[in-house]
Design a protein around this nucleic acid. Structure first.
Length: 420
DNA sequence: TCTGGGGTCCTAGGACCC
DNA sequence: TCTGGGGTCCTAGGACCC
């Protein structure tokens, strides 16, 4: 019997590697790729990193450094990276029948029942490099978290030659103490100091933490993390990409916004873009949320506010979104602040196929009509449960899903439907 | 002067209902 | 009639990810 194994493969400095594939003269030179409006560095090669560029370094701060040291800076080209990512994943599929695309440059592969995992991983690296030009590194482990940890070690420790297999427990005991707590997947800048304060400094310390304590400090995500570090499997691979749950359009302003008219212009424009995205993805939004906040980098009074406005029925209509966005902006506006960023967010999206229109139009449908509508959509969602409800000022029945009450659908069949 | 954008998940707390 | 407890719904906000 062979143990379950996951491999996490990622492209080294992925965006920069893509740029190098199309411009081989960049090979061996320090390269960085800049964010959308060339605001900051979002990818860098080890050569650039060695010269002092950090992830997220603002362009205006490193411009001189780049000029002085001959660092090549490129604007990002997401169409190119997306195409490259697709090609790399095609190669992965020849090495494992189960591939979960986790992000543009990372994929989880099922490596269970592979006799020599490291050898297969090395062969995969060679093939990806040969067919696409992209260099990769591979981490292997009995859980996804451990494969992620392994990938990190493969990155940090050059003697591992791009592949680290943590399936063996003895090797884990040896290597986990070498990984700082900040480098563990799921531990960010808020949790790391909290953990360090109680003496948790490395991945090994976190592994040995009582799961209940981890839950108290880091919520359920922390408890899962501890279990997975111990080799106990908690999350499986997502084989089919989940339906889009939210859409956001947000921007930082070149210069701060101080008047409500300007802000309404901005959020109205974001709402227009959001409506385009809804129609492109063929999903409907039940509500829209507008937020704005001041710059965290500047002195002065700070403010961060948000407002959600619901629609009578889910919509992708530009006018609905823009008028709600404008209304929300007025409602939360306060004078005397320098707003640096704002945006609109759409949550709880539904699709026309999964949620029959008639359900939303029904003002006072019969019990039979509601139950048959429920039957027609039942089981079409991957997770959670479904129920019908009407709430707030909205007279129409709504379809909702809620992970917290898995038995609700059954309850609904037995309980009399309330008439508001 | 200039510090990204787009996602997911979790939780607290108020409103409301029975 | 009064009260409390328990449940759900919804919003806001935080943390994390790439």
């Amino acid at each position: 019997m062979t143990a379950r194994s996951y491999a996490l493969s990622d492209g080294n400095s992925f965006y920069c590697s893509c740029e190098r594939v199309f411009d081989p003269s960049l090979e061996g030179r320090p390269v960085i790729v800049l964010s959308n409006n060339d605001g900051c560095a979002v990818a860098m090669t080890p050569e650039a990193k060695a010269l002092g560029v950090k992830m997220g370094s603002p362009w205006f701060q490193i411009r001189d450094l780049c000029k002085r040291e001959g660092i090549v800076a490129r604007s990002s080209n997401y169409a190119l990276y997306g195409d490259m990512s697709r090609r790399v994943n095609e190669v992965y599929k020849t090495f494992s029948s189960v591939v979960e695309v986790y992000s543009i440059d990372e994929s989880f592969l099922d490596f269970s029942d592979v006799p020599d995992r490291s050898a297969l991983a090395q062969e995969m690296r060679r093939t990806v490099k040969q067919w696409t030009g992209i260099p990769t590194r591979v981490g292997i482990g009995p859980t996804r978290v451990l494969s992620k940890v392994a990938n990190n070690l493969a990155k940090k420790r050059l003697e591992l030659n791009g592949v680290c297999d943590l399936t063996d427990e003895a090797l884990r005991r040896q290597l986990l103490p070498l990984l700082d707590i900040e480098d563990v997947w799921g531990i960010g800048r808020a949790s790391a100091p909290k953990l360090r304060a109680v003496g948790i400094e490395t991945a090994a310390d976190l592994r040995d933490m009582p799961p209940r304590q981890a839950r108290a400090m880091l919520t359920v995500a922390g408890e899962k993390l501890v279990r997975e570090l111990n080799g106990i499997h908690c999350d499986d691979l997502e084989l089919t990409p989940p339906v889009r749950k939210g859409i956001a359009v947000t921007r930082s302003f070149g210069k701060p916004i101080t008047t409500v008219e300007e802000m309404m212009q901005a959020t109205g424009f974001y709402a227009t873009r959001a409506a385009e995205k809804l129609r492109r993805h063929r999903v409907l939004a039940p509500s829209i949320r507008v937020f704005m906040h001041t710059s965290p980098f500047r002195e002065g009074p700070s403010r961060s506010v948000a407002k959600t406005i619901g629609f009578p029925s889910p919509t992708w209509d530009t006018r609905d979104l823009v008028s709600a966005a404008t209304r929300a902006t007025k409602l939360i506006w306060a004078n005397g602040f320098q707003y640096a960023k704002a945006g609109v967010m759409l949550d709880g999206l539904t699709t026309p196929e999964e949620t029959p229109r008639s359900l939303f139009d029904a003002q006072d449908p019969s019990r039979e009509a509601l139950l048959s509508a429920l039957d027609s959509i039942n089981g079409k969602f991957g997770r959670g449960s479904l129920y019908l409800a009407r709430t707030g000022h909205n007279p129409a029945w709504k379809l909702r899903s809620d992970l917290k009450s898995p038995a609700y659908t059954t309850d609904l069949r037995q309980a009399p439907l309330a008439r508001a």
